[in-house]
Computed example of a mutant assay.
Amino acid sequence: MHGEYKVPGGKLVVADLELTDGKLTNVRIAGDFFLEPDSALDDINGAIEGLPRESTAEEIAAAVQAALPSDAQLLGFSPEAIAVTVRRAIAQAASWRDYDWQIIHGEPQHPAMQLALDEVLTNAVGEGTRKPTLRIWEWASPAIIIGSFQSLRNEVDRANAEKYGVTVVRRISGGGAMFVEPESAITYSLYVPGELVQGLSFADSYAFLDEWVLDALKALGIDAFYKPLNDISSPAGKIGGAAQKRLGSGAVLHHVTMSYDMDAEKMVRVLRIGREKLSDKGTASAQKRVDPLRSQTGLSRQEVISKMLDTFVALHGGTRSEVTPEEYAKAEQLAAEKFSTEAWLKRVP
């Protein structure tokens, strides 16, 4: 069995092992990490050898930590990363390069259609009618997108939203509200088979699925990093946030919105951002809560997107694709019957 895990901001860890009578045997940990002393690698392998197949990531990490000498130095990885890699090997998790990635960067869509496309395309991947896909969104109109479990009245000033021509919609994933305008944000979705995140905790899967975009931002000169659970940040402030939904089809929807050039004053007029939440984020005012990509790169929005796509293809491969007529028709119906309705929007009043 073989498993790999690229530590967010760190190194690649590889695990090769066998199963004998329900025990982990012939364990070999490798990677491009740094480890001192050399003999600690034998300690790591020995700690995992003989563990039950059902061992959790926490149990594997604890066994590795206990076996390490007191002077051991692990650079670019950790006992927790080793445990994740072993669990991915046991689960026979797929890697990015196992798939023929499709890349969609289509025409602007209205908010309800964007959300409908997310659900339709994720299900298509789960049902095997579409290959794993990265989609870059283009917005046709301003929108507030609230999380699946958020209270509409607590999050949105609907009178001001109507005044400014901002459509309010509810997505199927959890997380917080977002305010976007055409050309003000960069939003993308990944529609991935569940096998890609096998062996990862729900929390670990966030950083795993966004590692490529951190690489792209770093190549643009931004010292980007992941701030658990789901924020992409930098020393200058928050850049964006991610959300996920696991569908019954077996596929995972992972989508991210990053601010490019946000109208912060309008945002605080249409969103009811509470002082407690801002304080929790360590910011003094809503106007400074999200740091735009434009101010950190000096590049156009399309130049940033181009760098993102180039990075994704270099790391994982990718072929340009389009939404099929059948997928588009399903999304139009879903947008009309679900995402455009007051019943769905007010599912949490």
Rank of each mutant, 00 (worst) to 15 (best):
T319I: 09
T56G: 15
D310W: 03
S234Q: 08
A203R: 11
G274N: 10
D100V: 06
I172N: 07
E127Y: 13
V348L: 02
R153K: 13
E119I: 04
P292F: 12
L17R: 06
T319L: 03
V268D: 08
V125H: 03
H110F: 13
L299E: 09
L115E: 06
E303K: 11
S151W: 10
S148K: 15
V256Q: 06
G147I: 04
N160Y: 10
P111R: 06
E54H: 05
K288W: 07
L190H: 03
G22C: 05
V252Q: 11
V84Q: 04
K131H: 10
A314N: 13
R87G: 00
A219Q: 13
V256S: 01
L35M: 11
A66W: 04
A124F: 02
G274M: 05
A216W: 05
L214N: 07
L217D: 04
M258Y: 07
E303D: 13
Q73M: 06
L115C: 05
I44Y: 07
E162N: 10
A124R: 04
G10A: 02
G194S: 04
R153V: 11
E107K: 14
F202T: 12
Y191W: 01
A242C: 12
K277W: 10
G194F: 01
I305D: 01
A236C: 00
V125T: 02
L217W: 04
H255L: 05
F77G: 05
R301D: 07
G147D: 04
G241I: 07
N160I: 07
Q296N: 01
V64E: 00
T167S: 14
P79Q: 13
V13Q: 08
L309K: 12
V180C: 09
N123R: 11
V156Q: 06
I144S: 03
T20I: 09
T129I: 14
R153M: 04
T311S: 10
P111M: 09
L229E: 09
S340M: 03
K218M: 07
E119N: 04
L75F: 13
R347G: 03
V156C: 02
